[in-house]
Amino acid sequence: MSSVPQNKVELMSAISDIFEKLQRDINGIPVEFSRICEIEGNVKGTKISVCDTLAYLTGWGKLVLFWYEEKAAARVVTFPADGFKWNQLGLLAQHFQHEYRDWSFHALQQELLVTTQSIITLIKSLDNSELYEQAWYEKWTLGRMIQFNTSSPMKNVRTKIRRFKKVNKLR
């Protein structure tokens, strides 16, 4: 399989595989380490926590679901989100982190699980043509937009989580 999913089966596999690996890594982190800000943030020069990374991934996953629901209902969608432009993704990441700042480590893990399962369910409900054979947002297919905002950031976050675990001797 190429590193970029080219069809429905590869997309589901990419998301499921990286999510399972990320979940294993996160499950090895004690709750008392979950709010330590030692992970490179999405805004240059910032440090975030494991909980913040979960908020970031959940925020993007929920945004993907929102985009789909709004477009399916023929409503106008502001990309990437109301109040944010594509060159403000660091600020959007901070918005997600702020939105979930009071959630427990366990609740964030659960929310990411439910969100990821909802994305897989959405993908299963669509055919390959809907996902990969037509532009959905500008030149991008729906499958690509889902991948850009799920499996790709999950891979990036997993690298950061593994580095955090190594530094904190949590292997």
Rank of each mutant, 00 (worst) to 15 (best):
K8L: 15
L63I: 12
W67T: 03
L170S: 07
E20F: 10
L92E: 03
A14L: 03
S49R: 13
Q23K: 14
A14I: 01
K47C: 00
I36D: 00
S16Y: 09
P30A: 07
I26N: 00
E20G: 01
R158K: 08
S3D: 02
S125W: 11
T141Q: 13
D82K: 06
E40M: 06
Y100H: 12
A14W: 02
R35W: 05
P80Y: 11
P80D: 11
L65M: 11
G90L: 10
A81L: 14
D17N: 04
S34I: 01
W86Y: 15
A107Y: 11
Q117S: 10
K62I: 09
A14S: 15
F19K: 12
S151I: 01
E32H: 13
Q134R: 13
T78S: 14
N27G: 01
E69R: 12
F84P: 04
E133W: 04
E20V: 06
I119P: 00
A74C: 05
L142C: 10
N7R: 13
L142Y: 07
Y137P: 00
T150E: 09
L89C: 02
R171L: 14
T141R: 13
L108Y: 09
E38A: 15
L91N: 10
P153I: 04
E20A: 13
A72H: 04
V167A: 07
L89Q: 09
A107F: 11
I18A: 00
F105K: 07
E133L: 13
Q147K: 02
L91P: 00
L57I: 13
L113A: 14
E111Y: 03
T150V: 14
N87S: 14
F96A: 01
M154E: 11
E10I: 08
E130C: 02
